[in-house]
């Protein structure tokens, strides 16, 4: 099977979520090739899981003040702050038949290139069920998956650097809890590539690209006009709407 690779690009949250759904539908209908894409979030954004409440999880007012997008994902999981310069995100969209049938097993399989990419940088990490990767016992990558009529979408983040103060100002944690103690607690549970050495974001991207392309037939590609037109429709019609983002 030949995979299309779409190299690192930056989009707003609504585009990033819309194109994943477009690909899920189009790969199902064989109108788009199986695709692995790498991206950043510009502006920075908070995404929440499919079943979370925006009002309960996100300080929407603070997001507006800072120009940070907020969006509901198509996938489950928790609220994530996507710093525009602090992470690389990937999405993989392909036939379910290419991966283990069990959801837990397929998480592990798709996370392997992330572990391998980090290893290329000299960072030892391991899969931590259900959907995380940890390095030195701390979370360095979170992942989420959905499936639709035989097609699997998994997207996830690889943390490059952390801005915990900003993260806490955007996620709804009561002020009492934003104490030094809690921030220290997060620092004990979460890490980033930058904590392991002076790696550039491009070097992390290069390592991830190499590991995701290993043992796969791949070809670099770009978005088709149809993909972009459909993405714009979903971006405006679904992911940019209050109806979707505040549906729970």
């Amino acid at each position: 099977m030949k995979w299309r690779i779409v190299g690192l690009e930056a989009h707003d949250a609504y585009f990033n979520m819309a194109i994943d759904e477009v690909l899920l539908e189009r790969v199902k209908d064989r109108l788009s090739p199986p695709t692995i894409r790498f991206y950043r979030w510009s502006p920075s954004a908070v995404s929440i899981g499919r079943f979370q409440s925006m009002e309960e999880e996100v300080n929407v007012e603070r997001c507006r003040e800072l120009g940070v997008d907020y969006v509901r994902r198509i996938t489950g999981g928790g609220a994530v702050y996507h710093d525009g310069r602090g992470e690389i995100t990937y999405s993989l969209i392909g036939p379910e038949s290419e991966f283990p049938k069990g959801i837990r097993e397929s998480y592990m399989e798709i996370c392997k290139p992330i572990i391998e990419g980090l290893r290329l940088l000299g960072i030892d990490s391991e899969f931590a069920p259900i959907n995380d990767i940890v390095a030195n016992g701390k979370k360095i990558s979170g992942n989420a998956q959905t499936r639709r009529e035989g097609v699997l979408l998994q997207h996830g983040t690889i943390l490059y650097s952390l801005d915990i103060q900003k993260m806490f100002s955007l996620l709804n944690v009561s002020k009492e809890k934003i104490s030094d103690k809690m921030i220290k607690n997060v620092e004990e549970r979460v890490t980033s590539v930058s904590a392991f050495g002076n790696f550039s974001l491009n070097r992390l991207y290069g390592a991830l690209l190499e590991s995701f392309m290993k043992n796969r037939e791949c070809e670099f590609g770009m978005w088709s006009r149809d993909e972009l037109e459909l993405t714009e429709k979903l971006r405006i019609g679904i992911y940019g709407t209050r109806k979707w983002n505040f549906s729970r």
């Binding site: 079943f51 489950g76 998956q145 729970r248």
Partner: peptide, 15 residues
């Protein structure tokens, strides 16, 4: 009843 959280459920619309 409204159920929220950071869990996974497939198919999602069946919640």
């Amino acid at each position: 009843v409204r159920i929220t959280g950071d869990f996974f459920l497939y198919p999602e619309e069946k919640l």
